[in-house]
Design a protein around this nucleic acid. Sequence first.
DNA 1: ATGTAGGCGCTACGCCGACAA
DNA 2: TTGTCGGCGTAGCGCCTACAT
Lengths: 438, 438
Amino acid sequence: MRLSSAGFSPQPPEGEKRVLNSELWHACAGPLVSLPAVGSRVVYFPQGHSEQVAASTNKEVDAHIPNYPSLPPQLICQLHNVTMHADIETDEVYAQMTLQPLNPQEQKDAYLPAELGTPSKQPTNYFCKTLTASDTSTHGGFSVPRRAAEKVFPPLDFSLQPPAQELIARDLHDNEWKFRHIFRGQPKRHLLTTGWSVFVSAKRLVAGDSVLFIWNEKNQLLLGIRRANRPQTVMPSSVLSSDSMHLGLLAAAAHAAATNSRFTIFYNPRASPSEFVIPLAKYIKAVYHTRVSVGMRFRMLFETEESSVRRELQMGCVVKDVKNVLLHNIESQIERLSVGKLQLVSMILDSYVSYMGTITGISDLDPVRWPNSHWRSVKVGWDESTAGDRQPRVSLWEIEPLTTFPMYSSPFPLRLKRPWPPGLPAFHGIKEDDLGMN
Amino acid sequence: MRLSSAGFSPQPPEGEKRVLNSELWHACAGPLVSLPAVGSRVVYFPQGHSEQVAASTNKEVDAHIPNYPSLPPQLICQLHNVTMHADIETDEVYAQMTLQPLNPQEQKDAYLPAELGTPSKQPTNYFCKTLTASDTSTHGGFSVPRRAAEKVFPPLDFSLQPPAQELIARDLHDNEWKFRHIFRGQPKRHLLTTGWSVFVSAKRLVAGDSVLFIWNEKNQLLLGIRRANRPQTVMPSSVLSSDSMHLGLLAAAAHAAATNSRFTIFYNPRASPSEFVIPLAKYIKAVYHTRVSVGMRFRMLFETEESSVRRELQMGCVVKDVKNVLLHNIESQIERLSVGKLQLVSMILDSYVSYMGTITGISDLDPVRWPNSHWRSVKVGWDESTAGDRQPRVSLWEIEPLTTFPMYSSPFPLRLKRPWPPGLPAFHGIKEDDLGMN
DNA sequence: ATGTAGGCGCTACGCCGACAA
DNA sequence: TTGTCGGCGTAGCGCCTACAT
């Protein structure tokens, strides 16, 4: 066979009983992705679910798809179950969630208490590198960033010349991959050589994709991939029309809503434009406890692509932001690692970038099909001209208004020791009443 | 990059406006697959459609999927449009059909006239070979069966030593592939060498898969693949649950039936256990004009897998059969080619095998969800013990009862010159009132 | 007639520093 | 610190025939 399967021990795919490591899943999903806690109450948006299908099939929802008047634009649900999976073909991570719409009485109750969810397990001791052309070329191996190798790879025996060892890493499907890890060259550097190229070709990695290494609790090295945002990764839909898919999720939600019975959805964070299962508390806070109006300034988090970040930094017009989950990350990492706060904060900051914009309108995204929906009800204009491909509409819970004053002061006095770059808006305090979201 | 793309000229996938060659599509779909004629009336079976999803997602339809009482088990439809496609990733062929349920009055009319469909264009001048281990190994090229090369490849210039030429073939996506075609060795043979291996690796072909070459009307060489029946080709459904998919097709059909509006379905002949869009005439004939009863013997066509055929032939218990469309094939080929009838018939026969069995019962497959459905209403027992994986239930239009006498004599007196193998049931006449069905 | 294997030339895979950036 | 390149040794790709079935 052409594609060598050396180092690849096939697993029975049917079973899939093995539970995917949660931290590996989150690492592959990306830093901004969070899953609501099992047992908590969430809000489900058929529109957002539909957008995931549209983005995957690369086809907009057709006009002749019937309306579901009985299906409200948002469904308050009990989240019964969440399981993490990875696509057999692509290693894309996705989550399966079992939702149960609340009955009318429960829905009323839902607005009363502030629900405390548990923050999702964000990985702590891992590293993620975006592959360069050299990394994916057949000419050589993989250049390991120095700090990453020292942080997550087992220490080398430096009495050897050159120092080297065999690394065994398990991917999302529990297949083993073996790599030769060597420390050589002038100046000295960490490299993965033998075994690397078969991995690259088997996973069909290209420059721009990312790989990440992480330890599990059983002291095993895990290995995940995060593919670059392809222009469009067309899903093979040779078996069901995209229209039927749209209808399918609507019908499933409508039936569940009508009977208050459970239904199942798949959330693919890399394929979906936005999260469409939101913690109830986050939704309530954004919709009922935050005042927004046209003309208001806001900011919103995005995942980093190195290139754009550097460019923006040079232009001096990007605000880095720390919020919500990051606090959890920082605290836990500071406890575990003996690294300086500032260094750690800057490490984490490197994964995010926030863009600023102005609210230009508040209206229904689809007044016919989904009147009075909060999904993408906010029309926005982005500051950067480079943000041409950003969504012109966002949902309230995705943005952070800037003109409202912080209601509480931060419990975690984050102060940068170096001066705040001139021309940037001042950091405003981090709210502590985040209600446990994320 | 690891996978060389030499000989691969990328096409814009978004457009997909180019129309797929019909004969190539049918060649890839296999000899038993036929598409109803555009404009004709057909019967659509939600159950069969559901089976296609189940087979693709490798997941049975869940019990908690709601019923669609308003959706009958079969829908008589006008077939407005049929387009042929091929999966970008796998080259799997599939068809997109636009159906419109007939209103009640039209439904009644439908049972009156016998509708004459046009037989689908089955390829005539082509060849198909199942790849051997040598064909797919990196050690060498592709061994072209002699008759195939002489029939479909351009004639070689035998003044050259050795005779050789460059073949250019276009795949289902109109990508060009170049192969060196050479006639050498002792004894002499046709081989594809340079260019073959990149094709094998790009298409990820393995031993057991088939390739086929065919000419289009513009005198271009076309190239398709037919993958072996993998144990299960799990569809990447990281974006929509199989439950939602089942619901989706039901909802689409129910909505279309309720409003007599058009809907769209995908038919993937290699993934679907059975055809679920049947020419109306074929349905009517099988259901209303054929008497079947428990204990009756029947036979049914299947596609050939060489190995099983050889084994069965040795056991002397297989009946090869010619029926319906085959007549069309034979006649057109005899006109075009100057090959003897017997030779041609035996060539075509090699693509089919029919298994025999006994009807053991007639009942609803799913009495709760789909009462009074003709879908797989016939419970059968197969003669061969090797047919353990065959469906225990079939539909009336899939089988050919043997105890009924032929209603008409054959217009095409097919007589084998060699004696009919002893122990085999006698050939019965071929019916001419096939109403254009395939 | 055609699947497989041995022989063997040569491409390109992949391991190594040397350089910048 | 790390991306890319020139260098090179060699595994294995791929073209040929021989042989068996």
